[in-house]
């Protein structure tokens, strides 16, 4: 396994150099903060759940490139990725179903104003939009990370044979 990984140039025990690891470690929190800003600010300006989710996933991709895919891959298990993917979709559909329930038979899917979070209809609409954007962001982040892992991780050959 170690020879195959060193052939790929990734996943060696001490693969990266100091500059790349330090810059990645410094940049990742700012990238993630910017992603959260884009997700929350997406209702009133450019940005939104999809773009913020892609930026959040790109921060994980940067971590993987800097620290090697085996070291970083153990921290992102496949099951957690799948759970996050479903969690985002459940948040989106759950907010929509709450709108149907609270609109009392009018059956308006994703009409956020009916959720009684505050007393004002417009504030309810803004908060519901933010909730939906958060769901989209979680799903897109998990999908981007999962696609990158599935593309880049050269797993054990017998494991790949079992999968195929």
């Amino acid at each position: 396994m170690s020879t195959k990984n060193s052939e790929a140039g990734e996943g060696k025990e001490r693969a990266g150099d100091v500059i790349v690891e330090t810059v990645a470690r410094l940049m990742v929190p700012f990238i993630q903060l910017f992603a959260l800003y884009v997700i929350i600010h997406g209702a009133g300006g450019p940005g939104g759940g999809f773009q913020g989710g892609v930026i959040f996933g790109a921060s994980f991709v940067l971590l993987v490139i800097a620290f090697g895919i085996v070291n970083a891959g153990d921290r992102f298990p496949e099951g957690a990725n799948t759970a996050f993917m479903s969690l985002g979709v459940y948040i989106y559909a759950g907010v929509g179903l709450l709108c149907i329930i609270f609109s009392l038979g009018a059956a308006q899917f994703l009409n956020y104003g009916f959720i009684p979070l505050t007393t004002h209809f417009e504030e309810n609409r803004a908060l519901g939009m933010d909730l939906v954007e958060i769901g989209i962001g979680i799903t897109v982040m998990a999908v981007v990370t999962s696609i990158f892992f599935n593309l880049a991780w050269k797993r054990e050959p017998e494991e790949g044979g079992e999968e195929e």
Binding site: A8, G9, E10, V38, P46, G47, G48, F50, Q51, V54, I55, G57, A58, V61, I65, V144, I147, F148, L151, A152, K154
Partner: peptide, 26 residues
Amino acid sequence: AVDVAFTEAAVGAGASTAFLIAALSR
């Protein structure tokens, strides 16, 4: 078209390049 530009910069220049490099490593 700032929103489209945002998507293009995040997906096209960021994520898609990383995916293509990951595919190239195989």
